[in-house]
Design a protein around this nucleic acid. Structure first.
Lengths: 347, 347
DNA sequence: CCTCGTCTCTGGAACGTTCTAGTGAAGAGG
DNA sequence: CCTCTTCACTAGAACGTTCCAGAGACGAGG
């Protein structure tokens, strides 16, 4: 069994006693604050080292009014959130802030996740693709700065950092049109964060080219994409498809290929998020990349601005996306060739 | 701009003043501790509600020696960890504990993640598939109870909760042998947590059937699986493949199908983890399921046992896995049929 | 010699809780 | 009538840190 705590963990006072100084001085040294000679600094540090002292962040935060703590609510299932969290850690560290993570899981909703963070006395909240209604977000923002990432919110109370999703989808459509496609269908994300903007971008780009848009219901997951693809196969198959996100696109790809429809020869497919899975050599999905690190940095920066009372010009920060062309998009094949059942055999 | 804090957040004293009682009494009420009449309980609660009081967990934990806080280190990229975290939240809540999450990201290694949790004064640590060397884990365990999940550790200092990975892989192989396969290859996970056990299970099951094992290097991700599959295609293709995990199996599947090799007709594939992606109707991968909720519950239970000084019989808790048969496994086809290039056309 | 700064360093009061040791008051038992 | 218990409640001391207001010591400038 591990030698369980009969010995309390060492405190400032223990270090102070050992180094023969006051606790206040030890505090100064541990914080790298000015007000101690290099000689004592060394001595104190050595004493701390010897007894294995670690500052107690609870007590530290309790005392100082600023907690230097940023609360983050994220979906534990969503790979895109994982990338964002990585970026947030980096950005927060640069600013001397810590992150308090609170996950949304199937058994733990957003309310609970937020409530946990509030108890921890975070100075500000960063919410990744939250599903709470606008009113709830505004209520929250009345108490502390709230930055919403990857979703637009129609409320002046919260800050928003997001990708220009309409532009992203426009890039995708324009790429397809440039390849010669006339029949482009959009597989929709429904009420998911960003879905409305992506749908709009698709519509606008198609309208600009004088083509008629066709939107079919999809969703966030692979299954939604698979269902959408089956719908398309049952009806009239377009020459190209733009999909709400990569996971959904994966479902589309899989059903198409299983049905013997070659991608990209018969159907081109574009995803969204440029997730790890899209980059796989075996998937190699053309996708719209969100600049995750920039989103994260802006979110942290904006939260800090609010805390410091810096006047903010635009409430919404929009980051341009980038189209990553891979091997699931190509020029359309003449229809007569397509009508024959295809057979992918190595030559 | 949000109405920023000129008003401090309300404290026990504020509630006490409003309800006309002492802070101690408010504390009693807020904790649902015995020692207050129902009448005053109501009154205090109402007062707290009115001024929007929220207990400050920092101060609360500082005062009480027990923090009722469990530290969890997880990989932000790993979907399997996401599932475990969900289970941990549920188990911790049942026991009246909170979770402190600390993520391992590409830019934040395990040391950092653990250091963060130690500052937060967690009572015990739960590490999901940690990559730290055994010695480092043992050092940690000298300070506080440490429970390692989904990896076996050769040290008496730390507790381990894991799936019987050897048995899992044995189940997979026995399933394939029962279907009539004689040529089964294992795509390995290398040094990943659990890989050694799975490899062993594979070897033992094949040995028991008097068949010769063949192990090819793989890895954790889709790309590793894809590479392994290309190796197999370049050499001699077996009739069945067991793969270290689902993500890797996905890579295998994709490369095989793109090369025109039908799954499961020509090659059967078994994954491991029964992750969300395996369950997709479009993937429908036969896989070995780990009982995530049970692993999580056992991990929390074991941590609490250590904290309470409950004597522990076995240091290692092993949970049996379960084979989930889906559509990527089938009896092997006679070789002569396989040799012709295949063509999957709907009839 | 006195004053003024600057540089270290210290004592003691916060921070918002919980915990310990009580204080009265009301009722029960003698 | 007096003690004893129980109940509802309170005062004040922790918890481990940071912050504030100084206190000496030491030179420099007058």
């Amino acid at each position: 069994m591990p030698p369980r705590a009969p010995d309390r963990r060492p405190t400032l006072a223990d270090v102070a006693a050992r180094a023969g100084v006051s606790t206040a001085l030890v505090s100064i040294v541990m914080r790298d604050a000015p007000g101690a000679s290099t000689a004592t600094r060394d001595r104190v540090r050595r004493a701390a080292e010897e007894i294995g002292y670690r500052p107690d962040s609870r007590a530290r935060l309790l005392r100082s009014s600023r907690s230097r703590l940023l609360g983050v609510v994220f979906g534990v299932q969503h790979p895109f959130h994982g990338d964002l969290v990585s970026g947030l850690y980096a950005a927060a560290e640069r600013a001397g802030y810590e992150l308090a993570l609170s996950a949304v899981t199937p058994g733990r909703d957003e309310r609970r996740a937020v409530a946990g963070l509030l108890q921890d006395r975070c100075e500000a909240l960063v919410l990744l693709g939250p599903s709470s209604p606008t009113a709830a977000l505004a209520d929250l923002a009345a108490h502390l700065p709230v930055v919403v990432v990857a979703r637009s919110v129609r409320s002046a109370a919260v800050d928003v950092v997001r990708t220009a999703d309409d532009e992203g989808m426009r890039l995708a459509v324009e790429h397809l049109i440039a390849l010669g496609h006339h029949d482009v269908v959009h597989v929709d994300g429904g009420r998911a964060p960003g879905a409305a903007e992506r749908r709009r971008g698709y519509r606008e780009a198609l309208g600009a080219a004088r083509l008629t848009p066709r939107v079919v219901p999809g969703g966030l997951g692979e299954d939604d994409g698979a269902a959408a693809a089956r719908d398309l196969l049952a009806g009239s198959l377009p020459t190209a498809v733009t999909v709400f996100n990569d996971r959904c696109a994966l479902g589309v790809l899989d059903v198409l290929r299983r049905a013997g429809r070659a991608v990209p020869e018969e159907v081109s497919v574009v995803g969204y998020d440029d997730s790890r899975i899209a980059r796989l050599t075996s998937v190699d999905l053309t996708s719209v990349a969100q600049d995750v690190d920039r989103l994260a940095a802006l979110a942290v920066g904006r939260a800090l601005d609010r805390l410091d009372g810096v006047p903010v010009e635009r409430r919404e920060l929009v980051v341009p996306p980038r189209l990553v062309v891979r091997s699931t998009t190509a020029p359309p094949r003449p229809r007569d060739v397509v009508e024959r059942p295809s057979c992918r055999v190595p030559p």
